[in-house]
Amino acid sequence: MNNDKHDLPSLTVKEIMITSVVTVFPEMTMGEAKEIMRLKNITGMPVIDKNRKVIGVVSIADVFQALDEHKLDAPIRERMTVKVHSVKPEDSISVALSLFRRYQFGRLPVVDDGNTLVGLITPKEVIAGLAAFLKLEEINEGDLGTKSGSEINRTLEFHLQGGNFDQAGIAASTLKKTLQEIGIRPEIIRKATIATYEAEMNVVIHADEGILKAVITADKLKISVNDRGPGIANIEEAMQVGFSTAPDKIREMGFGAGMGLPNIKKSSDYFKIDSLPGKGTDLYIEINF
């Protein structure tokens, strides 16, 4: 046990950082920053110049302030935080950890010696990295996730396994309880729960494995389900009521009537499904509160 402790610093930022980072340019407006944060469901972004050098950070707090002052059309350059703390790829995870603790940052850009952006880490990556390091199987990322956005966001994440029927429904019923706790209207909870259950069932019935993520914001619920599996060759056909490729075994259980996807669509305010045959399927829906 004691020895393990000494091994921790050997884990570096490079091993845990996100490399596809959402960024903005200084000449874009605060309004654009707000829109990107909303679409990408993030609470802050590094501001970079044409050479990918980090020149600032713009956070949701900056957006709120600009909103208050009616300055959403101001360039990001004028409103961003310029004193940026960053880490290096070769820094140990404990350097990042202490920065997060000391400053309560939501994120840290990762830069090379020339201050060029190479990645990003949030407390979530640190925790996931540590969890992997400690070989913890399950952690509830939802509660630990984007800490800085906890006032506006609550995220629930579920791992779904193809063929595991015992587990199907857990995401839907957990989400249901959470929405009840927050005091969302029952009709909305019903739609959300049904859509989630159908989506979960589809992964369990048709795919190999998947991640279901539910993000609760102030005004809506966003659910994404990304699976690895056979995918759907003809989405238009799959969307038809009654179209199903479910095997008899599934039908015996009362599923496989080809009604799930249309029901998900009917229950949601925004619906998008993309699939790569042989690879998997990505479903994204939104339900307004």
Binding site: I194, M253, G254, F255, A257, M259, G260, P262, N263, K266
Partner: peptide, 8 residues
């Protein structure tokens, strides 16, 4: 007898 129906 069809859960799909019940859900819908």
């Amino acid at each position: 007898d069809l859960m799909s129906d019940v859900l819908a």
